[in-house]
Computed example of a mutant assay.
Amino acid sequence: MLQSMTGYGKSEVNTECLKISIEIKTLNSKSLDLFVRISPRYRNKELELRKIIGDQLLRGKVDFSIAIENLSADNNSRINLNTVQGYIANLEELNIEGSKLDFLKMAVRMPEVFTNQEVEISDAEWKLVIDCLTSTLQKVNEFRQEEGGSLEKVLQEYAHNILNLLTEIEKYETERIDGIRSKLQKQLLDLQVQFDEQRFHQELIYYIEKLDINEEKVRLKQHCKYFFEVMDTDFQAGKKLGFISQEMGREINTIGSKANHPEIQKLVVLMKDELEKIKEQINNVL
């Protein structure tokens, strides 16, 4: 079963004095691109959190945030009094109109006014954070699996369309060869020159062999078969499916260059359209 790189999950846990919320959003990306918004309380745990997320999500653009709501009267934020007084003194030196209260309101908006005291995180609290993260990651992966199921159905449909169009090409192959033979004969007759009939047929066979597309058809069918196998067996299949689709494109292009028939050319264009749809969807496969 495929997995999409698009996912979402959110979980909350409570301690005696804190409400902890973790939210994760994921989008497609060629590699793991992890953006973290984390409370200063857990800043020293950031590397550990990154490793857990990376091990679970593997690839994609990941937006991770952990927020804390203080449920008690205690707060580890403190006002840096010396900094505030310094800002007020500087404002007074500017000789601008305003009361002490006005200057205080401006000063508390300045940088480094509030400081956070280091708080030792208990093992019990950290376990709750990890449990919350695990729950969120599980929700993200469930979302990804659901989206991946939808992607798989769409990709199967597009690949089957290519195989159906390939079958349609077979209807025109005899007509194509006959057309080439008639065209060459007409051109020789128009030239009004003598030619060896046996030599003409030898050259015709050589020319038709150059335009033969049976090998391309066989390889394209094999690529499509492998495409289905990878979707069924590999949940992290995005890059591999991308490589297979490139090989499919090479065979379709070669068939088009050898087609020499208007109806086959139309079918090749339709096959290319289906292949472009495949490539677009693969960009979101894990």
Rank of each mutant, 00 (worst) to 15 (best):
P262A: 06
R144W: 00
K239L: 10
Q236R: 09
F114K: 07
R78P: 05
V13G: 03
L204H: 05
F143V: 03
E170G: 10
V154Y: 03
I282T: 12
D123G: 06
N80F: 02
L191I: 08
Q236K: 09
E69D: 13
S21Y: 02
R109W: 02
S4L: 05
E168S: 15
N161D: 11
W126V: 01
N161P: 07
K272M: 04
E142H: 05
K210Q: 12
K30C: 08
F64K: 05
N95C: 05
T136E: 00
S150R: 12
I121K: 02
S4W: 01
S257Q: 03
E46Q: 12
V285R: 01
V36Q: 06
S29A: 13
K258M: 01
K239S: 14
G242N: 15
D102W: 07
K19N: 15
F143S: 13
F143R: 08
I66K: 05
E92A: 10
H223F: 00
K186A: 14
N70E: 14
E23T: 11
S245P: 03
V113A: 10
G179S: 14
R219M: 07
G86C: 01
N70D: 13
K239D: 13
S77F: 08
N14P: 03
L151Q: 00
V154I: 07
K258Y: 02
Q222C: 06
I205Y: 09
E142V: 01
K105Q: 09
M5S: 08
D232G: 14
Y158K: 14
E125A: 02
K225E: 15
M248D: 09
A67P: 07
M231W: 03
V285H: 00
Q192A: 10
L191Y: 05
N283Y: 06
E280A: 13
E247H: 08
D196G: 02
S72I: 04
E203S: 10
E280I: 06
S245W: 01
N164G: 12
K183N: 15
E152R: 08
I180M: 07
R176P: 03
L241Y: 02
E280C: 11
N164I: 01
K186Q: 13
V154S: 15
K10E: 11
A159R: 00
K45R: 15
E69K: 13
D232W: 02
Q187R: 14
V154W: 04
D273W: 02
K171S: 07
E247N: 10
N82W: 01
E48T: 09
S77C: 09
T167K: 11
N95H: 12
K240L: 15
L128G: 10
L151T: 00
H201Q: 15
L104F: 06
L2W: 03
K277W: 07
F228K: 12
L133P: 04
N76G: 06
L104D: 03
N14K: 15
L58E: 11
I252K: 03
N260Q: 14
H160D: 15
K139T: 03
M106L: 14
Q3C: 09
T167V: 06
Q85S: 10
L94H: 08
Y207R: 09
R144Y: 00
F235S: 15
L18H: 10
Q192G: 08
T6H: 01
V285G: 03
N161T: 14
L137S: 06
S31Q: 15
A259W: 00
C224Q: 12
S31D: 14
L47R: 14
G242M: 08
K239F: 06
